[in-house]
């Protein structure tokens, strides 16, 4: 263990940029502090003693083989997991010092601040404009001018404005898969969240659309904390600051992405990353 941190120090010294980045990360606040989180689906113990601290304005990748609990984990962060019947959760997840698992913590409020982008693009069967305006509307914004502004800002934020500005009132299903997913990201931005959870957002997309989403994530990290589940290890390596490796419901390793991919401290992480299983 100490040998590894030696190793890391050397690398940090070599690379000036990394020195700066790690210095900055010391000051970053934690958005999510997960303590002793356990989750059961009926009898299945899906998450086991998860302890993770996720920092703000970082991209945190969650990787691991199918069924390892990575999707379950991020769905716990906005309590979407509770939609599954028979779920039981113990432990604590602090979002800005409040335990979101408290029964009196309002999920509606939580999900306003912690947005989610899903695996499959899931626009509503409505116009592009109505898709974006949906979130602000449910939160009570009725003023047409403000809605117009939110729609434009959100679509620009998801870098899809130029493609759709002339067809805002056409059905969102006319867009390509990649465009639909960026629309869903824009829809998420429209509620002005602080954290964006992404559950394998590119797994249904072609390589070109995937690249655009990855570029977008790089843009968004300036203003948002992003937690992204991905099957694609190159993607995790390309876009994230921190990576958590899940296996059988446990966090095997959580560290800087560079370290995880160049010098993992756990043999299982190395095996997974080098493609020996998964």
């Amino acid at each position: 263990m100490s040998a590894l941190s030696e190793n890391q120090k050397i690398r940090v010294k070599i690379n000036d940029k990394e020195v700066n980045e790690s210095a900055a990360s010391e000051e970053k606040r934690a958005v999510f502090q997960t303590k002793n989180l356990n989750l059961w689906y009926s009898e299945t113990h899906a998450l086991k003693d998860i302890n993770l601290e996720i920092k703000e304005n970082e991209v945190t990748a969650v990787i691991g083989p199918s069924g390892c609990g990575k999707s379950t984990y991020i769905k716990t962060l906005n309590r979407m997991v509770e939609l599954v019947p028979g779920v039981r959760i113990t432990g604590e997840i602090k979002y800005k010092d409040k335990n979101i698992l408290d029964k009196d913590f309002s999920v509606e409020e939580l999900r306003t601040q912690v947005g989610m982008v899903f695996q499959k693009p899931n626009p509503f069967p409505k116009s592009i404009y109505e898709n974006i305006a949906y979130g602000p509307k449910i939160h009570g914004i009725k003023n047409k001018k403000i809605l117009d502004e939110i729609v434009e800002k959100s679509l620009r934020g998801a870098s899809i404005w130029d493609e759709v500005k002339d067809r805002l009132h056409e059905n969102a299903y006319g867009l390509s898969g990649g465009q639909q997913q960026r629309l869903c990201i824009a829809r998420c931005l429209a509620v002005e969240p602080e954290v964006i959870l992404m559950d394998e957002p590119t797994s249904a997309l072609d390589p070109k659309s995937t690249l655009r989403i990855e570029e977008l994530v790089q843009e968004l990290r300036k203003d948002y904390s992003i937690i992204i589940v991905t099957h694609n290890m190159q993607q995790a390596a390309r876009i994230s600051d921190k990576t958590a490796f899940f296996l059988n419901g446990e966090v095997v390793e959580f560290d800087d992405t560079d370290k995880i991919f160049t010098n993992p401290s756990d043999q299982r992480t190395e095996d997974y990353i080098s493609g020996r299983f998964g």
Binding site: M80, E108, R111, F118, N122, P123, Y134, H139, C188
Partner: peptide
């Protein structure tokens, strides 16, 4: 997935 999207926005 439609209702999930809606719940996901609060």
């Amino acid at each position: 997935h439609l209702s999930e999207a809606s719940y996901g926005m609060g």
